[in-house]
Write a protein that binds this DNA or RNA. Structure first.
Length: 683
DNA sequence: GAGTTTGAAACT
DNA sequence: CAGTTTCAAACTC
């Protein structure tokens, strides 16, 4: 150990060539610049280690905790591969390390840097020196780095995978309880999330080496920031202002910290995604798996991640910009819930496959907003959003008295942000100081309802809607995911979540006497039906056979009443129990945490009717035209109360046909339409 | 600013 | 899963 440490400190640079030369040695010791010079090639690494310079790494397990999620899941083989791919950059890493040392020596005054170097760089050095037992490092982040980095570099790659696991075990055994806990947690999370995403993992792994550390740095930075700020703040709960405290150097970090402070888990997630995306470009350009697949599999909770991914650069800006903090404060919640639009189709896919991510969108929103503001002259937008109901859910400032801001009653908590000064909450636990509690609570809530933190309002992605099914377009471009349940407000007051979100009521709503200014439920239904009707007509015209079938089918006794497209969709889902969930996930675009536990979704999907409706919309998007062709069983499907009415069951004779379009019977449709409906409309 | 209303969230 | 309670925002005065 001593040797390794010594090496870490003393021999950052290539030994063979330069050590002999006193001149070089001297230069190496004194000139950090040189070291930096060589870094450029490996963008990710360089940026990783140094992009976020200042205060970092002090942060304990918490930060690592998040990282651990990623790391744990990667299998050693993939890891080794990743490293192999990065092999060429090994020397660069070395250089980086060296530079880090230089910095350390040079900037002794900067505690942050010292911490950083001590925590992260050392490992790298150690790995270089082949010191296998670095367990001593208390920093969890080190573990990850160590595990990831060591194997590939090892002279003997043959046993890399095994070495990794062995080392990991060692680390776990030797590491502090906290670390173990984190690792365990990470494992849990991984398991929880999409285990099938080997591809994603693989891709991730590829990037992990670089991105990982980057994350580490970023996370640590933020974490540190939190610590710095929060700890003191604990004394005076109200004073969370980070800006004042932060060291001058850590400006960027500072901002991050501030953001972090206000935003929960998502932020980290978003950062990770961002990093991943970047890494993809640099490391995975050739990788067949698009970036989307490379998204972290299970991180789960937040749609933000997706949104973040799509906006990567912007996010960076936010973090980097000091102004972001101010903005955030002034418009903490101003962000409208993330729209599905924000979620790019590509990401959508992954979202679907990886539910966990979806939810975060809303949380992310604040950041997104900040970005927009920064990137654009968005003062107007800001105002507009604030003013607009719905769009302007804006400032999240709670006034919780009894919930401790740890329940969804709390707007801040529900939005995925920490409470801030403007909040008038009492006995608030939604503070960075109580991060663990917050995360635990959040987790608990999500376990109960995977979509609990999902954006409530879903904005239809035009691209998706248009490409998939124009007919599915509804009057409103956005709808409340679960709809409202207003009884007395007529959906004309902010009591109504739909109205508050600035969206019209939809099938999902169970409101009574809906007069939503943004769109009445009735109008919504009517529009859907009309559009469907038109669609059916046009299709029939195009395909005479279809009309014949319809006529022949007794069940289609209600030709005049077009069945909303969505209805079919719902029915079709084979794997949907009770006709729920799946669509929702898709529609959400991300499913959010729901992905973790599909079942939960089902449960969660509140009432039959709603799920149904929600599904319908979603399905429309998803389902091919063929499905939409399905004769409209009937409007009856949806009762006035928006309760679902089971359509008359028809003979199952047709159930066999994939298209099964004509069958009115729900069951038939279900069976007939597999996961991938036939593209042949003539069937 | 206090009190009331409202509907979501949480609980049973 | 439905009914009830709790909660905090929205609203009213």
């Amino acid at each position: 150990m001593d040797n390794s440490q010594k090496k870490k400190i003393e021999t950052p640079t290539p030994k063979s060539k330069f050590e002999d030369s006193p001149v070089f040695n001297y230069i190496n010791n004194l000139s950090p610049i040189e070291a930096v010079r060589s870094i450029p090639t490996v963008q990710t690494f360089s940026s990783l280690s140094f992009a976020s310079p200042p205060p970092v790494f002090t942060s304990p397990h918490a930060s690592f905790h998040r990282e651990s999620r990623f790391f744990r899941c990667h299998n050693s083989v993939e890891r080794s591969k990743a490293f192999e791919s990065l092999d060429g950059s090994a020397s660069k890493q070395e250089v980086v390390v060296a530079s880090g040392e230089v910095d350390l020596n040079k900037e002794a005054t900067l505690e942050e840097q010292e911490e950083e170097t001590s925590c992260e760089l050392p490992l790298i050095l150690k790995s270089h020196s082949q010191a296998s037992d670095h367990v001593d490092s208390p920093c969890t982040g080190d573990i990850v780095t160590q595990v990831l980095i060591d194997p590939p570099r090892g002279e003997d790659n043959a046993s890399t995978s095994e070495d990794v696991s062995v080392r990991l075990k060692k680390i776990l055994d030797n590491d502090t309880p906290g670390c173990r806990r984190l690792m365990a947690d990470a494992a849990e999370l991984l398991v929880f999330r999409s285990p099938n995403d080997s591809e994603a993992f693989g891709c991730l792994v590829d990037k992990i080496s670089s991105s990982e550390r980057r994350f580490c740095a970023g996370v640590k930075l933020t974490k540190q920031y939190d610590i710095i700020k929060d700890v003191p703040a604990s004394g005076s709960s109200t004073d969370n202002e980070p800006l004042a405290v932060v060291p001058s150097q850590a400006v960027s970090n500072l901002h991050r910290g501030s953001m972090r402070r206000r935003c929960l888990d998502f932020e980290v997630l978003g950062k990770r995604k961002k990093d991943i995306a970047e890494d993809q470009q640099t490391l995975c350009e050739n990788n067949a798996e698009s970036s989307s697949k490379c998204v972290v599999p299970g991180i789960g909770l937040h749609l933000n991640a997706i949104a973040m991914a799509s906006r990567g650069s912007k996010i960076n800006i936010i973090h980097e910009d000091s102004a972001s903090v101010e903005i955030q404060k002034s418009f903490p919640g101003s962000t409208t819930p993330v729209n599905s639009q924000d979620i790019m189709p590509e990401t959508l896919d992954q979202a679907v496959s990886k539910p966990g991510e979806g939810l975060a969108v809303e949380e992310e929103t604040p950041k997104a907003l900040v970005l927009e503001e920064l990137n654009q002259d968005s003062l107007q937008k800001k105002k507009r959003r604030v003013d607009e109901p719905g769009e302007g859910e804006s400032c999240k400032r709670c006034n919780c008295k009894k919930s401790k801001c740890l329940k969804l009653y709390c707007e801040c908590f529900a939005a995925g942000v920490y409470c801030i000064e403007p909040c008038s909450c009492v006995d608030c636990f939604n503070r960075p100081i109580h991060e663990d509690t917050v995360l635990a609570t959040r987790k608990q809530i999500e376990s109960r309802n995977p979509l609990a933190f999902a954006p409530k309002v879903i904005r239809n992605s035009d691209s998706i809607m248009e490409t998939i099914d124009d007919a599915s377009k509804t009057p409103a471009s956005a709808r409340h995911k679960r709809g409202c349940n207003c009884k007395k407000s007529n959906c004309l007051k902010k009591y109504c979540e739909c109205y508050q979100s600035g969206v019209g009521c939809s099938i999902n709503c169970r409101c009574e006497g809906c007069k939503n200014a943004f769109g009445k439920k009735d109008a919504y239904l009517l529009t859907i039906m009309e559009s469907k009707q038109e669609e059916d007509v046009s299709k029939i015209q195009q395909n005479p056979d279809l009309s014949k079938e319809v006529e022949q089918n007794p069940s289609s006794d209600q030709p005049s009443t077009p069945l909303p497209p969505y209805r079919h969709m719902v029915v079709h889902q084979p794997f949907l129990s009770k006709n729920r969930l799946l669509p929702t996930q898709f529609f959400l675009g991300a499913g959010s945490s729901s992905f973790r536990k599909p079942d939960g979704d089902l449960k969660q999907a509140r009432n039959e009717k709603k799920p149904l409706e929600t599904v319908t919309e979603d399905k429309t998007e998803i389902m091919p035209e063929i499905l939409s062709d399905t004769p409209i069983t009937t409007i009856k499907a949806i009762s006035p109360n928006s309760k679902r009415v089971s359509p008359p069951h028809v003979g199952s004779s047709e159930s066999g046909s994939i298209l099964g379009k004509r069958t009115n019977g729900r069951k038939l449709i279900l069976r007939s339409i597999p996961a991938f409906p036939s593209l042949n409309p003539n069937q």
